[in-house]
Write a protein that binds this DNA or RNA. Sequence first.
DNA 1: TTATGAAAATGAATCGTTTCAATCACCCGA
DNA 2: TCGGGTGATTGAAACGATTCATTTTCATAA
Lengths: 340, 340
Amino acid sequence: MAVSVKEVAAEAGVSVGTVSNVLNRPQVVSERTVDKVAAAIEKLGFVRNDAARQLRAGHSRNFGLVVLDARNPFFMDVTQGAQRRALDNGYTVLMGSSDSSLTTEGQLLDLFEEQRVAGVLISPMHSDLSRLWKIRDSGTPVVLVDRGSGDRSFSSVSVNDVEGGRIAAQHLVDLGRKRIAFVGGPQSIEQVQHRLEGAQSIIAGTADAVLQYLPTAQLTVLEGRAVGERILAMEPEQRPDGIFAANDLLALGILQALVMSGSLSVPEDIALVGYDNIAFAESAVVPITTVRQPAEEIGRTAVDVLLREAEAGEDAVREQFVFTPKLVIRESTVGADNAS
Amino acid sequence: MAVSVKEVAAEAGVSVGTVSNVLNRPQVVSERTVDKVAAAIEKLGFVRNDAARQLRAGHSRNFGLVVLDARNPFFMDVTQGAQRRALDNGYTVLMGSSDSSLTTEGQLLDLFEEQRVAGVLISPMHSDLSRLWKIRDSGTPVVLVDRGSGDRSFSSVSVNDVEGGRIAAQHLVDLGRKRIAFVGGPQSIEQVQHRLEGAQSIIAGTADAVLQYLPTAQLTVLEGRAVGERILAMEPEQRPDGIFAANDLLALGILQALVMSGSLSVPEDIALVGYDNIAFAESAVVPITTVRQPAEEIGRTAVDVLLREAEAGEDAVREQFVFTPKLVIRESTVGADNAS
DNA sequence: TTATGAAAATGAATCGTTTCAATCACCCGA
DNA sequence: TCGGGTGATTGAAACGATTCATTTTCATAA
């Protein structure tokens, strides 16, 4: 059914080698022949078989990208940035979501290995990078996304999460909040861990401020809503007056629960800070103060690094990019009244 | 660098054919041999080369999915549903976003053809399906997603958009709104066109109700905000008192502009209805009334249909699934006061 | 002991593209 | 007219997994 170079060659009255040359290095082929072959391709509707091409090349022109949660707009933005930059260099990006599951993460990596991707971009779950070591040893470059590589053994493009945690906590403290809650989890996700650490460091250095940790199983709106319910059910004297959520989805969920109840108001009773600055944080019931990460730029940069590593091969230099997060202040901490 | 079946065969002391059998039909191989081969695979870290496998098979085990906008949570949900169902059947889904550009849509289809995908799922831009005909003629099944196939020449999984438009407009009319605005575009997107038609049919049948069309170039939050500005700038007497936005992103943007201005309130001055029921519609400044589409189910069903077509080959039966949309009423039309 | 058949294992051919050493065509200067 | 050189073209080998017709092995019945 499918047309192959062989048939194109027959139609154009040339050899298969020539057809291949027309496809890949037209400058070495005479103009007349290029035209003949182009006509044959057009006539027969020939489409290159990428599998055969890859087989010969030994690897594909796809990068594999593993994100923690495809439904989180933050990761969609990262993906978008990566996709575009890759496309500009003749590569495509296969995106998979690990959904914070180690098993799924492994399956995706299996898949990418079978597909012989030209490189792996991954926002890994935890600190055991042995699987990634193996992949790189087999010749496939790996770049960590949204997560630093402690020992610099991998290239990475990340944001300083500890600093992000500090910024958020400091902001709450500056507003005079004393009973701060950190919402997020699982702790096995390093980003969450670091944001918590940052917050802890600020609270520890602040007189009579206390930090309580409200763990969640995932970083979703639904989990956020559940935490909101839990907060509503607390005794007033132990209820937090400032909440730092590990991402905007959680913050959105918490906000929803609080607002729907009608008994607690944001930011008067509870000030709320999120993380990521997804587009929807701005259009929330109460626009959410958040810590901005340059999502698209992270994606773009990660692909750039990967391209360089792929280019360099064996003796590639590891690069560490660390962006600095920025606080975006909105009504969920400062209130519309105070703001204007 | 990479280990091939040949080396595994040597290590295990068997032939390559046997290794392949162990991989694909272990039941025809003696248990002892299976163990030997498994040990060799483990020892050498062998990973199947999918390109070679595909080359032989003539097609891959990937489906290609083209959505209109990867950043729209609605399509992410569709993708998620498709991804999961595909994975359960041993397939994977390559997702690409056409970003409402015909050129990009074409590029993605080129890519999918080169990759010899086992099937195409597409939310096509316009009604010229000739490209899709060609793809199907070459033996690759095609299923339209979120869009019916007028003449039933393609299988499709969609939602009745005309009905959705009717529901939304009827709701606004029932609330006593007379000057209705439809926001959305480009009209080349059939879904938008149909929703508009539905709204028109209701308005046409309602005494002294008028419909004005506010076109947009895309269905994004940003465009929505621009429309919001435009509405704010209108003379009060020609300003709409009810808005039907072609999707929730637009609605969110419009809402943002109106609320930020502080001069017009929702729903008192303007009632607002969106479309899709994305998760963020519920957590908006004013929770948005919207028309729900069963996103994940659409994705799942589409893959089911594709699997059946792929199975059946030539003489596949075309299937048309049309879901019925449902109105989800929230404060953007009914107001918190009236609601409780 | 030998014949018989089932089970297991083999290995060559195949998929479609790319690469590269070898060949061919052609022009120019001697 | 011939040799040398350049540019264009050729065709066979290679990539790695799968398939299938063939061969080998082995247990059992005669």
